[in-house]
Computed example of a mutant assay.
Amino acid sequence: MDTRDLRVMANKIRRRDLRAVFEAGAGHIGGEMSVIDILTALYFHVLRVDPDNPLDPERDRFVLSKGHTACALYVALSEKGFLPKEEIETFLKPYSRLNGHPNRTKLPGVETNTGPLGHGLPVAVGMALAARLDSAAWRTYVVTGDGEMQEGSNWEAIASAAQYKLDNLTLIIDHNRLQQGARLADTNNLAPFAPKLTAFGWEVIEIDGNNMDEVVDALSPERRPVGKPLAIVAHTNKGNGISFMSDNVAWHHKVPNAEQYKQAMAELEEAAL
């Protein structure tokens, strides 16, 4: 897809995600709205994955470390063909494969279980190192939240990735400045991330993570460094695309009421025109 088609797809995923959270009565809609442009670029422009062969040994690996935004991942996977689109209607229902956090034993396309924060990046480093040891060509991508970067396990993984010169690894930080219940600046403010990652030996790109042109450019093969891992600090807005949710900490884990749902859907539909 070109960037225009990717923007159309991202809007479609936002609308379906909004409806799924509203109907389920639960979800993490704010962080889902901030990360959807990144997920869309990955699944429809970057990742070498095949829904008909989800365990292809040569596939790229993607880890959604901020696993609480699972619904956005499920919608992206359904649009890519990993699961029936109608299955999104089962989100969070009893016996559904679509749990509140991704589960690799239940759903094709999910590489590892995530939810407890600080686990996804260490696993992704292990994946990238395994590819290096096998002289394999596939790449590993991982998305973390910025609040999640407060976990010390991430910085151990960052040091290890630099030590092993894992230039087949890309970390994307969804830097929406908000975490559950507070702003990053009011808890343990690790921002700015770029100088810290650079000091650890990573190549770093900073972008507007809700600008599809910038996301696609940052993920292009031409931007990949040689001999060091790549970190993309994606500055985003929590609740992006919905006026009353945007940059609002209350929407980390909140469900719109009927009137709010109607307004949010109208705004997204207008943006799609």
Rank of each mutant, 00 (worst) to 15 (best):
H101C: 09
N210F: 06
D247Y: 03
S96H: 13
A258G: 08
G152W: 08
S153C: 09
G31A: 05
P54G: 02
Y95A: 14
S160V: 12
V46W: 04
D186N: 14
L133R: 15
I205R: 12
A124T: 15
L39T: 06
E222M: 05
R139T: 05
G239N: 03
G227P: 09
A26R: 11
E111N: 07
E270A: 15
T198M: 10
M127C: 02
L47R: 04
A159E: 04
D146C: 10
R4Y: 10
A182V: 09
I88D: 00
D134C: 04
A266H: 10
F193N: 03
H252N: 12
F22K: 13
T170Q: 02
T69Q: 12
A271G: 05
A131P: 02
V216S: 06
L121A: 10
G126M: 12
A76F: 05
A20M: 09
T187P: 01
D213K: 11
Q179I: 11
L73H: 08
A137M: 04
P225G: 06
E267H: 06
K238N: 12
R104L: 08
L178F: 11
N168R: 10
I205E: 07
T198L: 10
R177G: 00
P116T: 13
A199N: 09
Y164M: 09
R223A: 08
D134F: 07
L190A: 11
A136F: 09
A41D: 04
L98K: 11
D134A: 15
E111A: 14
H175Y: 12
R223W: 08
G181D: 07
S96C: 13
P116D: 11
Q150E: 14
L98Y: 11
N210I: 06
A199W: 07
G25P: 05
P195W: 14
K254S: 06
M149Y: 06
N188R: 13
L133G: 01
R7D: 01
I172P: 01
M212V: 02
L178H: 08
E214R: 07
L171I: 13
A162I: 03
P94K: 13
L18W: 03
V75D: 02
S160N: 09
G25S: 07
G239H: 04
E23C: 04
V143E: 00
A159M: 15
P195I: 11
K93R: 15
T3H: 03
N211V: 01
A130W: 13
T69I: 13
D208K: 10
G239S: 04
A124L: 07
A162V: 09
E151P: 02
V63K: 02
L64F: 02
H101D: 08
N257F: 05
F91I: 13
V125I: 15
D174F: 12
K228M: 14
T90V: 06
Y261S: 02
I205G: 02
H119F: 08
T170K: 00
I173R: 05
A258V: 11
T140C: 13
T105C: 05
D213F: 03
A231D: 03
V216R: 00
E111H: 10
A161C: 09
